[in-house]
Computed example of a mutant assay.
Amino acid sequence: MKAAILIGGQGTRLRPFTLDAPKPLLPVLNRPFLEYQFQVLRKSGVREVALCTSYRALDFRRAFGDGRRLGLRLRYVRETMPLGTGGAAKNAENLLLGGTSLILNGDVLNAFDVRAFLSFHRARRAEISIALTRVKDPTAYGLVLTDAKGLVRRFLEKPSWDEVETNTINAGAYLFEPSVFSHIPAGKTYSLERGLFPERLAAGAVLAGWVAPGYWIDIGTVDKYLQVHLDILGGRTPFKPGAGVRALKGFEGAIVAAGAGAHVAEFARFSGAVSLGRGARVGRGAQLSDCVVLDGAVVGDGARLERCVVGARARVGTHATLGPGTALAGGSRVGDYSQL
């Protein structure tokens, strides 16, 4: 089976970090986020992957090349204008010939069994199967309602609590039979979620919804980008940090992962889970709790950081404070004793 990953978005909700890199290439524990999805594909036997690019498309070629070092064969297709999820998938049609295709959203991490998904899809003889995940607050998402056999019966967009009948949402992974592509217009902006899926359901096509067990997260916001680090460090996922990451010892009750060349001065204190990028430096007496400090950033003496993300090469001044939700752009500077 071949796969396509939709990675053309600009990642506006993850700015300022996506001003310098596309969202799927942002580092998560010193490994590009997309490499975790590659791990899932490789483990499931998928070897050919089409990357559907648009924003900063060349960055992906520089990062992954032809995919050999990852155990994959990567091919690239680029949108010259934004085409939405449907148009991006249509662009990859010629690279997905030969059978059922797996389509993935590039900003979602699914730790699921692709083979089990495919078996479900074939058993239902579906034209399209949608991987689903369960959420605590279904009013924040579009819901997918299925029957007892797992066949899709209805789509419900961001319901009120009195309309909620399920908590299963689209998890951003799909299986397509080859015929599906004939229903996607070429060269036009078109949505899988708001166009293709409800239209095919209304036309009587068989759509199935498979509730995927295991870890799932959409890293589309700064809060979720921070959370995926905390989840991996906290052992809540099957994923491991990238090569060269070492666990720092001697910080009781904290999990600290440091990239190559990271340095922590004496009397620094950590709590929760903290990720330090390559060459990051933490000053004397600094206090860090549940935060991410990206490559080459410097945290000054006595600074305090809590549930925040510090961009690459940023400078946090002596005794400065960064509070929950702070997203400090790469290369920026926070003055001594500042509070954000």
Score class of each variant (00 low, 15 high):
Met1Gly: 14
Lys2Gly: 05
Ile5Tyr: 11
Arg13Leu: 15
Leu14Gln: 14
Asp20His: 14
Pro22Ala: 05
Lys23Ser: 14
Leu25Ser: 13
Pro27Ile: 08
Asn30Pro: 01
Pro32Ile: 02
Phe33Met: 09
Leu34Met: 13
Tyr36Asn: 02
Gln37Lys: 05
Arg42Met: 01
Arg42Tyr: 01
Arg47Ile: 00
Glu48Ser: 06
Cys52His: 02
Arg62Ile: 01
Ala63Gln: 14
Phe64Cys: 04
Leu70Ser: 07
Leu72Tyr: 02
Arg75Leu: 10
Val77Ala: 15
Arg78Met: 07
Glu79Gly: 15
Gly87Ala: 11
Ala89Asp: 07
Ala92Val: 12
Ala92Leu: 06
Asn94Lys: 13
Asn94Pro: 00
Leu95Pro: 11
Gly98Lys: 08
Gly99Met: 12
Thr100Lys: 12
Ser101Val: 09
Ile103Ala: 03
Ile103Gly: 05
Asp107Phe: 05
Val108Asp: 03
Val114Ser: 08
Phe117Thr: 03
Ser119Arg: 11
Phe120Ala: 04
His121Thr: 00
Ala123His: 03
Arg124Met: 01
Arg125Trp: 00
Leu132Glu: 08
Arg134Asn: 00
Arg134Pro: 01
Pro138Trp: 09
Ala140Asn: 08
Tyr141Met: 02
Leu143Glu: 10
Asp147Trp: 02
Lys149Val: 01
Phe155Tyr: 14
Pro159Met: 03
Asp162Pro: 04
Glu163Met: 10
Val164Leu: 08
Asn167Tyr: 07
Asn167Lys: 06
Asn170Lys: 07
Leu175Asp: 13
Leu175Ile: 12
Phe176Tyr: 15
Phe176Ser: 07
Pro178Gln: 04
Val180Ile: 13
Pro185Asn: 13
Ala186Trp: 02
Lys188Pro: 14
Thr189Ile: 11
Ser191His: 06
Leu192Ser: 13
Arg194Tyr: 05
Gly195Asp: 15
Phe197Gly: 04
Pro198Asn: 10
Glu199Ala: 09
Leu201Met: 14
Gly204Asn: 03
Gly204Glu: 11
Ala205His: 15
Val206Tyr: 00
Ala208Glu: 01
Gly209Ile: 01
Trp210Glu: 03
Pro213Leu: 00
Gly214Asp: 06
Tyr215Arg: 12
Tyr215Ala: 12
Thr221Asn: 02
Thr221His: 01
Tyr225Ile: 02
Gln227Phe: 00
His229Arg: 01
Gly235Met: 09
Gly235Tyr: 10
Lys240Val: 11
Pro241Tyr: 07
Gly242Glu: 01
Val245Phe: 11
Arg246Tyr: 00
Arg246Cys: 03
Ala247Tyr: 14
Ala257Ile: 09
Ala262Tyr: 08
Ala265Ser: 15
Glu266His: 05
Gly277Arg: 10
Arg278His: 12
Gly279Val: 05
Val282Met: 03
Val282Asn: 06
Gly283Ala: 04
Arg284Pro: 03
Leu288Thr: 09
Ser289Ala: 14
Asp290Ser: 10
Cys291Trp: 02
Gly296Asn: 04
Gly296Lys: 02
Ala297Asp: 13
Gly300Gln: 10
Gly300Ala: 10
Gly302Cys: 03
Gly302Met: 06
Gly302Asn: 09
Leu305His: 09
Cys308Asn: 12
Val310Tyr: 12
Gly311Asp: 13
Arg313Cys: 04
Arg315Trp: 06
Val316Cys: 07
His319Leu: 07
Ala320Asn: 13
Thr321Gly: 09
Leu328Pro: 13
Arg333Asn: 12
Val334His: 00
Ser338Lys: 06
